[in-house]
Design a protein around this nucleic acid. Structure first.
Length: 256
DNA sequence: ATGCCGTGGAAACCACGA
């Protein structure tokens, strides 16, 4: 069972890429972020024609998340991260698919830091930690997949010294991510490739992809029942090299 | 050290991303 996460940076602009990548890799479950489309503009028809059931939570201009399931319908659990009724960003959606519990998330960027956007990011992280605590010890497999906007360690960024004051790499951000993993979540990509340099994002400018000046910010966190089934993990980094690509590459795991 | 590019939406620029 292949489960992937892909920040598409506009589903409208990236639909041809999404369909080509689905055709080439046939993942069973796909978590999408940054749809940048209102609810009624999601291309449901083409996604279903490609063989996927789908639920999504859109928003005009910004954010937006979706879960696709090959050959079946995701069973929606929620489409809001609990803990703040005032938060109207579409950044979280959760479903079960073939007995696996999937949380799809788009964590706030948080820049500039410090400031109100960084405060929002840290509050969102706190809410995620609280929500994840209830799932960490679940006897069913749980996968929390998405664009975390968190660089977990120095090895996950091409030049860490340039990022120490950035919201993606600040101590507060990494500390909160550490509280999450301390609940018992497995960082699947790092666990499968303990010594590798792995990136999932490359900036659009300064030739970042050609220079391999990237970040690892898209993650799949697994609770114990899910991690026991983990057999492989990777990044489809070639997709980042396609013409008019998203700045993120699809990131995936394989569960037995 | 830097939004230099890309996207959406409104407006012929600005907000936002990481």
């Amino acid at each position: 069972m292949r489960i992937a996460t892909f920040n598409v940076n506009s589903i409208g602009a990236r639909l041809p890429h999404l369909l080509r990548w689905l055709q080439e890799t046939s993942p069973h479950v796909v978590c999408l972020q940054e749809l940048k489309a209102p609810q009624e503009k999601f291309p449901e028809g083409p996604v279903r024609d490609a063989g996927y059931g789908v639920i999504w939570h859109g928003q005009k201009s910004w954010n937006g998340v979706a879960i696709l399931a090959r050959g079946c319908e995701p069973t929606e659990i929620r489409r809001v991260l609990p803990g703040d009724p005032e938060d109207i960003h579409s950044r979280y959606i959760e479903a079960t698919i073939n007995g696996v519990h999937i949380g799809c998330l788009y964590l706030p960027n948080g820049n500039p830091a410090p400031g109100p956007k960084f405060d929002y990011k840290l509050r969102w992280l706190d809410r995620l930690v609280a929500h994840a605590a209830e799932r960490a010890t679940s006897s069913t497999p749980v996968v929390l997949a998405g664009d975390y906007n968190v660089i977990p360690t120095e090895r996950d960024v091409y030049k860490p010294e340039r990022w120490v004051n950035d919201a993606l790499f600040r101590v507060e951000t990494r500390e909160a991510f550490g509280r999450l993993t301390a609940q018992g979540w497995t960082d699947a990509l790092r666990t499968m490739h303990p010594d590798a340099t792995i990136f999932t994002f490359w900036d659009y400018f300064r030739d970042a992809y050609a220079r391999d000046a990237g970040l690892r910010i898209d993650h799949l966190l697994l609770n114990q029942p899910a991690s026991q089934r983990l057999v492989s993990a990777g990044v489809d980094r070639n997709v980042r090299g396609w013409e008019k690509a998203s700045d993120h590459a699809p990131t995936w795991i394989e569960l037995s």
